[in-house]
Nucleic acid binder design. Structure first.
Lengths: 220, 220
DNA sequence: TGATTTATTTACCATTTGGTACAAAATTAT
DNA sequence: ATAATTTTGTACCAAATGGTAAATAAATCA
């Protein structure tokens, strides 16, 4: 009997050690809010208002929680924004990374821009892309976040560029094409679409712009 | 003698009435700062920081003047921003209105985008276009300005559209072209270029994007 | 010279900002 | 039951926000 119990305890311990998932109930007062739901709510606020436009008071209100709980859980405003950003990339704009797996460069771009148009014009979402508009301009205290977002934009431009280089080796993109320039062109379109969405452009309107932008796709 | 003096006085009065320009020295203590220079300085601050990112303290500092003088002269922050906006339109981006006078739709767009690239990449200027980025996202207290800038963007899109309609009647743009869509496409490119400029894109890079965007200009 | 007019300066206002100290509440471990 | 641990709620902080009252300075008018 005691042997069985001991074995079970060992099992639980080793499981915990292996998976690194704590099954043991935490010691103190339990958290009153779901962390993922909170990030989702915070996303809505940061997405619609931008980094500086979102105040901690409004965030706390949206999460249905008091400020000290936010600080205890996420650190400070910058840290919360970064976690929200990760949530944003893993959720609403996960299609961006997935699009790179399309078989040809053209299909990559088509999927990337089409999904962007859908996201940007979805009335359930705040208007505009958070990576593009989260902190384009800002006060002296937010230049850090501003630069980080510039880095994110540079990054997806680079990812596109590398995908185009691959396409050149695979033959679905002409060898003479400048991958970096094509990537910057696509990024420019995407960023313009974001501004258009903020102005209330519909999905049809965004799609029409995309069609025009892709009419000059390099073929020969 | 007295007659001559009277005549002069009358002359002065009527001149003032006609031209509505007061030659008479103002009565109280003279202004300690030049109003146009002040607007120029304020433009630099609003241009680089956006509407919300620019604080009255920073503005006062840039103008080399105390806050009460700003309020006495321009009203409040919103009013100052609007005057700065007018200055911006009449100065740095005056080319936008001028571009509409180009003889063909293509040349209109070419001039508009080329001048935009020059302005956006000029190291003497803050990065990005103020109409595009002045208040893309903002806190609850600035939605008025945000909407006004959306209006400005809609407006230049409309101006482009009307110019394209004219071009269709003049024959330098095919009749089947959708002027509104083409205008939205050009506006999207311009807005994307603005974001790119904020990320540090060079004039050459912007021009390359423009070249790609205009490769599919409707010809037949 | 004064009286009047206007602008500047200083000092302040209420509100909001991001952030926190601290005590009370809610849970587990003993 | 009680100790230990953790989170919550209240109440607060200094600094910054947009904006202003009031005294003072500099000019014109009589």
């Amino acid at each position: 009997m005691s042997n069985i119990i001991d074995t079970e305890k060992l099992d639980e311990k080793s499981t915990k050690a292996l998976t690194n998932k704590v099954i043991v109930k935490p010691r103190g007062r339990p958290l009153a809010f779901n962390q993922e739901d909170a990030l989702e709510s915070a996303l809505q606020v940061f997405w619609s208002r931008g980094y500086e436009g979102a105040s901690m008071a409004e965030l706390a209100d949206a999460l249905g929680v008091n400020k000290p709980s936010i600080y205890a859980t996420f650190g400070n405003k910058e840290a919360l924004f970064r976690k929200v950003l990760a949530q944003y990339l893993a959720g609403p704009v996960a299609y961006a990374a997935e699009a790179m797996n399309e078989p040809t460069a053209y299909k990559v771009v088509e999927k990337f821009l089409t999904c962007s148009a859908a996201l940007l014009s979805n009335p359930d979402n705040p208007r505009g892309c958070m990576i593009v508009q989260g902190a384009l301009t800002c006060g002296q205290g937010s230049t850090m976040i501003q630069q980080e977002l510039i880095g994110y934009r540079k990054n997806y431009e680079n990812v596109l560029s590398q995908r185009f280089e691959l396409a050149k080796t695979q033959g679905d993109l002409p060898a003479h094409v400048n991958a970096k320039s094509l990537a910057k062109y696509i990024a420019t379109i995407h960023q313009g679409l974001s501004v258009q969405a903020t102005g209330g452009a519909s999905k049809d309107e965004l799609m029409t712009v995309i069609d025009m932008a892709l009419k000059n796709w390099p073929t020969t």
